[in-house]
Amino acid sequence: MQITVNTSACVGAGQCVMTAEDLFDQDDDGIVMLLDDSPDSSHEAGARRAASLCPARAIKVTD
């Protein structure tokens, strides 16, 4: 599984941090920071949920 984030689209709502704290954080400006771009499959549900809830559609998860 591969995760990518689009920092220029991010609106800093923090939904991803709430959903999957082990994969995402926010920098000092509130913009998404990817903590792990290829986590193991145990993180898949969290990653996909964060992607589906992102208000800016700034998170992509691919196999």
Partner: peptide, 8 residues
């Protein structure tokens, strides 16, 4: 303003 209001 997002930095001041972030989850972090």
């Amino acid at each position: 303003i997002t930095g001041r209001f972030s989850a972090k």
